[in-house]
């Protein structure tokens, strides 16, 4: 699957603040200006987190060659003269929507794994069990958060036969958002231990969520 930044704009909606080169191909999704390796064909999502605001790092990313940005702060960006700049309501939601749209282009089975303990082990073991005759995709290491899951899903490709995606949840409402991204054909709930009980009012509520 290859997308141009123009096509991504169509998927996400939003408003172009600046459109320098609409045919730019997008392969990598970038969130962190410290981790840029494929900058030129990357798309940087400026996400506002609890501690950092991705908008603070736009220039740093630009200087490393990034030319495509999704932002949710409606302002001027004179420091990014030659960039494609898409303004959306919520960059995190846009990232999740893009991953969800990407997910829909595949018809092979997608298994979602969630639970308190053992997610990664089940994922790795499933991969080992399938590997001899399935071209299986699995989410990299611990990419299981609200931003990690979209990045995981983004790695799905045409040639795979099955995808194994891990999802971690720690707060109410998170599962629904991740489920919308993963759209699993089948779900695995690993044991609901005590490891992540903060943020849930009761064990019963927790198992209902899964």
């Amino acid at each position: 699957m290859a997308y141009t930044i123009h096509e991504i704009g169509d998927i996400l909606g939003g408003r172009w603040l600046q459109k320098a080169s609409p045919d730019n191909p997008v392969e990598q999704l970038l969130l962190d200006s410290r981790h840029l390796s494929h900058s030129t064909n990357g798309l940087f999502f400026a996400i506002r987190g609890v501690h950092h605001d991705g908008h603070q790092f736009l220039q740093e990313a630009y200087l490393q060659g990034v030319r495509n940005f999704v932002v949710d702060r409606n302002t001027e960006y004179p420091e990014l003269p030659e960039a494609n700049l898409l303004l959306v309501d919520d960059s995190l939601l846009a990232l999740q929507n893009l991953a969800a749209a990407h997910r829909q282009s595949f018809s092979y089975p997608v298994v979602g794994i969630t639970g308190s303990n053992g997610k990664t082990i089940v994922k790795e073991w499933l991969y080992q069990l399938l590997e001899p005759d399935y071209d299986a995709y699995r989410s990299p290491k611990s990419f299981n958060s609200q931003v990690g899951v979209p990045l995981s899903v983004w790695g799905m490709q045409d040639h795979h036969h099955v995808a194994i995606i891990e999802a971690g949840i720690s707060r109410r409402g998170e599962m629904a958002r991740l489920a919308a991204v993963i759209q699993p054909n089948i779900g695995i709930f690993t044991n609901l231990g005590q490891a992540h009980s903060e943020g849930f009012s009761s064990a019963a509520e927790k198992s209902r969520k899964k």
């Binding site: 089975p109 073991w125 499933l126 069990l129 099955v162 690993t190």
Partner: peptide, 24 residues
């Protein structure tokens, strides 16, 4: 116990995929 439980999860999924039980 944890490993056994994790493997049973995997087993159930492979059953759903209709993989040959001997291979599994």
């Amino acid at each position: 116990d944890a490993s056994i439980e994790n493997i049973l999860h995997c087993y159930t999924f492979l059953y759903w995929l209709k993989m040959d039980p001997d291979v599994v």
